[in-house]
Simulated scan of single mutants.
Amino acid sequence: MSMKVLLYSGSWNLVKQSGVGQALLHQQAMLASKGVATTRVWENDASVIHVNTVFPDTLWAVRKARRKGMLVVRYAHSTMEDFKQSFVFSNVFAPAFRRWIRFLYQQGDVVVTPTPYAKRLLESYGVTRPIIVLSNGVDTTRFFPSGEKRKVFRKRFGLANDELVVISVGHFIERKGILDFLALA
């Protein structure tokens, strides 16, 4: 019997446009590229569940997966440090959020996080499950250097060929580094 992975997509409408939603789609594409079957609906033949979100519905999903004998992969996209400065009063709720995500991440057979920094944070929270660092990655078939696109971009924005240009992609909020970006610019 070959392996099938359930990519749990509860609360999909809340995350589909976010980095977490894009990560789920990236996981689906990468698993498919390795010949691993995936599904986003509950099927009896799935042997692993990947859980990317930290919403309350994931408690139900993990418990159901455990009853079915599935292995649980928890993705640690969120940390308390990322949560801070993300909305009004987020700093007040940050300690409770830290306890919540520690509880959720402890439910995984393994926890996957994108950076060594995030791994150290999770360990400092007391997460004792095995933590694997695995970059979210970049789709190099979509994002790659292109001399032609470079020329079009420079012409469109009136930039000289030798002019230094710094570009960043992300939300214009402090926790995503907008203040550092502006200071650097």
Rank of each mutant, 00 (worst) to 15 (best):
D57M: 13
I173H: 02
I49G: 04
L6M: 10
R102H: 11
Q28P: 11
N52C: 15
A160F: 01
I101A: 02
G158D: 09
T79R: 09
A61Q: 08
R74G: 03
R154M: 11
V48C: 09
G137C: 08
F83K: 03
D180V: 04
S86R: 14
N136G: 13
K34F: 12
H77T: 08
S11G: 00
F87I: 12
D139W: 12
V111S: 04
V138D: 07
A32P: 03
K149A: 14
G147Y: 09
L159N: 00
E43G: 11
S78T: 15
K151N: 10
G69W: 13
R67G: 00
V73D: 00
V62I: 15
W12N: 06
S86P: 07
A29W: 05
F157D: 06
D162K: 09
R120N: 08
A46Y: 02
L14A: 11
F83I: 09
V62A: 08
G19W: 09
Y8K: 00
W100N: 02
K68V: 04
T58G: 00
V54Q: 03
K176N: 03
F153K: 00
A61F: 09
F172T: 02
D82C: 07
M3H: 08
V41A: 12
R99S: 13
Y117V: 14
R63W: 14
D180K: 03
L179E: 01
W42G: 00
L184V: 01
W42R: 09
Y8D: 13
G126A: 04
F172I: 03
R99N: 10
N91V: 06
K16I: 03
A76G: 13
L159V: 14
R156H: 14
T128L: 11
H171N: 07
E174S: 03
K34W: 10
R102S: 09
F87K: 07
R120V: 00
V48P: 08
L25S: 05
D180Q: 04
T115C: 06
K149C: 07
S146P: 12
P114R: 05
G10M: 10
S47W: 01
L59T: 04
S146W: 12
A23M: 09
E163H: 07
F143I: 15
L121H: 04
R150E: 14
I132Y: 10
N91E: 12
S11N: 13
P56Y: 12
W12K: 12
E174A: 03
A183L: 02
Q28N: 15
G158Y: 10
V51T: 04
K119C: 08
S9L: 09
R99M: 14
R40L: 12
N161A: 10
I132K: 10
V54C: 07
F181S: 01
L104R: 01
V62P: 06
R63D: 12
N52D: 14
F172W: 03
T113K: 05
W100V: 09
A61R: 07
Q85P: 00
G35P: 08
L59Q: 07
V62K: 04
